[in-house]
Amino acid sequence: MKIKFQIQTPTSKPALTLAHLISERAEKTCFDEVLISAAYVTISGIRLLMNGFSNSMPSSSKWLIGLDDYITQPGAIDTAMAIPGAEVKVVSYAELGLRFHPKVYILRKKSKPKQTLTILGSSNLTSQALSKNGEANAIIDAENQEDLLTTQELWDALWKQGHSPTKQELTAYKIKYEAQNARKPKAVVVKQKPKPKPGMIILSSDDAELDPTLANVCWIECGYITAMGREIELKAEQGLFFGLNPTGEKPRIFDFIVSSGNKTQLRLKFQANHMWRLQLTNEVPEVALGLRPRLRDGTLGRSPYVAVFERTDKKSLFRLRFIDLSSMEFKKLTQKSGQLGTLGKTAARQYGWC
């Protein structure tokens, strides 16, 4: 085996983080299978890891998730279970007064098994551990068949410690998780936070308790929307709500039910500024009337509306509504998103999902 050591500190440059290392290797090898064992898992940790496979998403994955200490987010388990081709097991040694604590990442390509990458160390599957905390990991490359067998034996020994969770077990865990975290003091607010990656604001921290792919509602203030009020830019991470890659992909067309009750097709296109741009038409009644007010000097002012997207029972069909910034509904949306840790604030607009 070829072994290197990776050290990460709070002052490490992005290129020296574990998240960047995984992304860099994934770009070169195009791994098609991921095996993960972690004591603590967050939604943001899963998303940061998966973003590293933007060029080629693994078709198969296994997730062994620890439940001890009630740190793993219930939403993270839901997120892992919703990934296509994923198999999820959970494990806890709390009844023995002990903890499940391994952190192992195995990335491999079935057609080129000798390019298997194994990471063993201190990094849990959280955004902080993958990109900000002080961590140390061994980066191990397989060199021969014996190395591959050793790696498989390692994973088999870990995997058999877990079990497939039942709905009752997950419900009970969620109740205890919420009770445990309700007693925790609020985190100290840091005045100068590290600048998040382009387009990733909510999911750059481990506070989000709901993944966009599992949310029922996604919203964003229209603000000074582009193209004379005919386009709305959504944050990259909001693309996940529509099943889009937050790091970009080809434009996609979706069906939307608008306020008139009619169904119309609208295009979402990824922009160079790491945002998804929704191109609107006059078939959207609010667009035909004007989403931005015309000021006395003839220019367009800031829109008083919030775009609200809602899921339907069809995968590519969404409802699109516009509500007033001063409405009680918008106040409730921001409150609910805030409670879930899914409220994003940029210099110009608020957005979120719930």
Rank of each mutant, 00 (worst) to 15 (best):
L210I: 07
E237D: 10
T226S: 14
C218Q: 00
A236D: 00
C218E: 02
G223W: 07
W219K: 01
A227L: 15
R252D: 12
V217Y: 00
D207S: 05
R252L: 15
P251M: 12
G239C: 13
I220N: 02
L210Y: 02
G248M: 04
E249F: 06
L214S: 06
Y224H: 04
P246S: 14
P212V: 01
A215F: 01
E237K: 04
I225M: 02
E231P: 06
Q238E: 05
C218V: 00
E237Q: 05
Y224D: 03
Q238R: 04
C218W: 04
E237A: 02
D211R: 05
K235D: 06
F242Q: 11
A236H: 09
G243E: 15
D206T: 11
D207N: 10
A227I: 13
F241G: 13
L210H: 02
A236M: 04
K235R: 13
S205V: 14
E249R: 13
I232C: 12
E233K: 13
G229C: 08
N216M: 08
K250Y: 03
A236G: 03
I225P: 04
A208C: 09
A215L: 03
T247R: 15
E209T: 14
L244Y: 13
M228R: 08
M228Y: 13
V217D: 04
R230G: 04
Q238W: 09
P212F: 03
C222T: 07
G229L: 13
L244G: 12
C218Y: 00
Y224Q: 05
L214C: 03
L234A: 06
M228G: 08
K250S: 09
V217T: 06
N216I: 07
I253V: 14
M228P: 01
P251T: 07
P212Y: 01
I232K: 02
N245P: 03
D207F: 06
G239T: 07
A236Y: 06
Q238G: 06
A215S: 13
A208G: 07
G223V: 05
G229K: 10
K250I: 08
L234D: 00
L234Y: 01
L244H: 13
I225Q: 04
G229F: 11
L234H: 04
E209N: 14
G248E: 13
T226R: 10
E231C: 14
Y224V: 09
R252F: 15
D206N: 10
Y224N: 11
T226L: 11
Y224E: 06
D206M: 10
G243L: 15
I232E: 06
G229I: 10
A215V: 08
R230Q: 09
G248L: 02
F241Y: 11
I253H: 06
I220S: 07
N216W: 08
E237W: 02
D207C: 09
T247C: 12
E233S: 15
Y224R: 03
Y224K: 03
E221A: 00
G229R: 06
G223F: 07
L240I: 11
A215D: 00
R252I: 14
G229N: 09
P212W: 02
